[in-house]
Design a protein around this nucleic acid. Sequence first.
DNA 1: GTCTATACCTTGATAGAC
DNA 2: GTCTATCAAGGTATAGAC
Lengths: 193, 193
Amino acid sequence: MGTKGSANRQRIVDAADYLFYSRGYNQTSFSDISDKTGIPRGNFYYYFKTKEDILAAVVDARLIEFKDMLKCCENAASGPLERLHALVQFPLQRETQILQYGCPIGSLSSELVKDQDTEISQTRLTAVFDLLKNWIEEQLNKLGQSARGDDIAKDLLAKMQGIIIIANVYRDAEFLRRGINDIQSWLNQTLSH
Amino acid sequence: MGTKGSANRQRIVDAADYLFYSRGYNQTSFSDISDKTGIPRGNFYYYFKTKEDILAAVVDARLIEFKDMLKCCENAASGPLERLHALVQFPLQRETQILQYGCPIGSLSSELVKDQDTEISQTRLTAVFDLLKNWIEEQLNKLGQSARGDDIAKDLLAKMQGIIIIANVYRDAEFLRRGINDIQSWLNQTLSH
DNA sequence: GTCTATACCTTGATAGAC
DNA sequence: GTCTATCAAGGTATAGAC
C-alpha cells in the first residue's frame, strides 16, 4: 500500500461516490466511472471484484464522511444541545446538492431497499443511520433524556429526511431553511424542562 | 376501446405499477413485466411507444389512486380537521407495503430526480404531490388557515415523508404508528386557536 | 500494476408473419 | 390485435498481453 494502486482505487471510489449520489447506483455504469476517472473499465476489477464491491466501498466512504461531519459538530460547539443544533444546520452547507439530489444516505437507502441483490450494502447503509442515531442519543443522554432517547433520535432523523424530500421535490431552498429552523425550535421545546 | 386490447393495456399498467413500486423503475425490465402478465415483450409496443410511456401511464394511475384516497377521506369524515386526520392515518392501511417499499410517490420521486431522461414523468410526479398539497390547503382554508396554508401543507407532507422513510429504513411498524400519532397531535395543536 | 480486447448477457426497441 | 424473431447498444465481467 502507499503505491500508485491504492491512489487509483481511491479515485474510483471518489468518482463512484459522486456519481451514485447524482445519478443513482443503478444508473451509473462502469463506463461512467471510467469516463470520470480516465481509468479503463477493465482495470476496475483489479481493485474490486464486482460492482457491488464498489458500492460497499462508497458506503464506507460515506460513513467516514458522516463521522467527520459529527466531529465537526463536536468541535463547533461545547454543549450537547448546541451540537445537536450544529447537526441540524448541516444540510444548509450542502444546500445546492441537497436541493438537486436529496440526502446522500436517504436517497441511496430508498434506492437500495428495492434491490434484492444488494442486501449487504443495505445493512451497511443502516449503519450510517445508526451512526447518526447513536450520536444523537449520546447528546440526549447528556441532557438527561436517556429514557426517550431512542424515540427522540428517530424523530429528529425523520424530520430532517422529511424536509429534505419536500425541499428536493419542489426545489425550494426557502422551505429547507424554514424547515431546519422549525426543527431547531422543536429541539429547544422538547429538551426544555 | 372496450376491446381485449385495452384490457391488456390495463394489465401491463397494473403489473408495471406494482413492479415499479416494489423494485423501482430502473430495475424493472420489459421481461419482468412480461413474466408477470404473460404478455410477450414485443407486444408492449402496440400499446406504448417507449418504456417512459409506461412510466407516464403508471404515474397517471397513481394520480387516480391518490384521488380515490382523498375521496375516501372526504367520505369518511364531515369536517376539514377530521378529513386531514383521515389522510394522515392512511399509511396505516398500507403498513406492510410502506415498511417494505416506502411511499409510492416519495420513493419514485427520489428515484426519478436522479434521472435526466425522465423529465416529463418527473413533472407528473410533482403533480401528485401538488394534488395532495392543494387538497390539504383546501381543508386548511375551511379552517381559516388560508394565510399559512402553503407552509402548513408542505410541513404536513414533509412530516409524513419523514416518518415513512425512517419506518422503512428500520422496518419499524411501532415507530410508524407513533409518528402518525404525533403528526395528529401536531395538527390539533397547530390548528387550534 | 496497468491496459486492451473481448466474451456474454440483458436491455429497450423494431420488423414482419399470422 | 397478437406473437415470434431479431436488432443494435450497452451492461458487467474475464483473459491475457505488456
